[in-house]
Amino acid sequence: MKREELYREIGLIDEDLIEAAGQSGTVNKKKGFSKKWVALVACLVLYSSTASALLATEYYKNQNAEPYIRYLRAEDMELLPVPKYDGMKFLQALTSDNEEHVYIAINRLVEGFNDPSLRAKALQKLQPFARNENPKIADAAAFAIDILSQSYRSPYIVKLADGSMLFTLFNHYSDYGSQNVLWRIKDNKLEEYSSFSAPSLYITDIIPSPDKRLVAVVTCSNKSEFVQIINVEAGRTSPELVESARVKYGAEQEIDTWIRPDYENYSYADHIVWKDNDTLEFQGSLAYQDTEIIENVTVTYQFSSKVIEVKKLN
């Protein structure tokens, strides 16, 4: 028996080793790529890169074609520039024979407060209207003159602890109240501070806290009243208190509380007073199921702690 056969029998040699030993004298030659294959691969790479670039370009083109709208404002939907305040237009309107136009122009001229030249012209033109036979025009002119002359003596002006002043324009133009926009003068600059949306169509009162750091703003429609507290300097506002009281009291008394789609509450606030610098109290007439149920209550709200209490009036 040959040595190799003996080793196979006793398992001391591996078949692969024997085969490798038999080929130990041969030399393997590496095969190289031909030039035509190199050219073909290069063409494929170039084609792939070009196609990717074209696809990316088309993708970004489509991305840019899609509009991105985060929030739509009313003026955006008009597709026109927002008209700028034109004080000269209101100066010219003072010569109108239409008393309504004159009344509107007088009030709108206050908005020119920040323009010294316009303010001087308006003051000169407004003087005769303070003696107008129409009491509404005379009252509006007196108020406009008070603001534009920087006298600030009008009872319509609420002076706050931070040195700013709040007021409305078109004071008591309606039986329901004044325009539902709050204007503020601070550091000798006029700005539109806040406006109220429907159903708060009119401002009926602005009641400062004893320390003049907060104001209670009473608004209304022809069906409902609303009350909010504002920290003007900090820009903080309470929830609307009449509806908050109506919902809270309704839940406590297990009364069905419907919230109308027009947000009218058919409820009213009366005897609104500050109990201290942070606490507002008023008597509320709260309506449920339209006006089938009327509950008379006392409402107390602490602004800093955001606590509202509603108690039935005895």
Rank of each mutant, 00 (worst) to 15 (best):
L44A: 13
L12H: 02
S149P: 01
N107M: 09
V232S: 01
G25D: 14
W183C: 05
R153K: 08
A144G: 03
M88A: 13
D278S: 12
Q63H: 11
S48A: 15
A122F: 00
G250I: 10
S149I: 05
V307S: 07
T168R: 08
K189L: 08
A20G: 14
V110H: 09
N132T: 02
E15I: 00
V102C: 09
R213H: 14
V299Y: 00
D256L: 15
S96L: 12
F167P: 01
Y7R: 12
I308K: 01
E5C: 10
A140W: 02
G112I: 05
D270V: 08
F167T: 01
Y103D: 01
H271T: 14
S195F: 13
M77I: 05
E19I: 14
T26V: 12
N314E: 15
A251R: 14
W183F: 14
I230A: 00
I308D: 00
A140R: 04
L44C: 14
D256T: 15
Y202H: 03
S195Q: 12
D270M: 04
T204A: 13
V273H: 05
S197R: 07
V273I: 13
K312S: 06
K306R: 15
D290E: 03
I13E: 03
W274K: 09
S154L: 07
R3F: 04
E66I: 11
S52D: 06
D256I: 11
I294E: 13
Q302A: 13
L12C: 13
R3Q: 03
G163C: 05
V273W: 07
I185T: 10
I259C: 02
K275E: 10
I272D: 02
T57W: 06
Q283F: 12
E19D: 15
L54P: 05
S221K: 07
L80K: 15
Q179L: 12
Y266R: 08
N28V: 03
P199V: 05
L123V: 07
V27G: 04
R213F: 06
L12A: 10
A198Q: 07
S164Q: 10
A234V: 07
G32Y: 08
R246A: 01
F90Y: 11
N171M: 09
L118P: 02
V232E: 00
R131C: 02
L79Y: 13
S285Y: 03
R153Q: 12
L190M: 12
E254M: 02
D270C: 03
D262S: 15
D146V: 03
V158F: 02
K275S: 15
G22S: 08
D14F: 03
Q228S: 08
E295R: 04
E264D: 12
A198M: 09
E192T: 15
N107L: 08
Q302C: 04
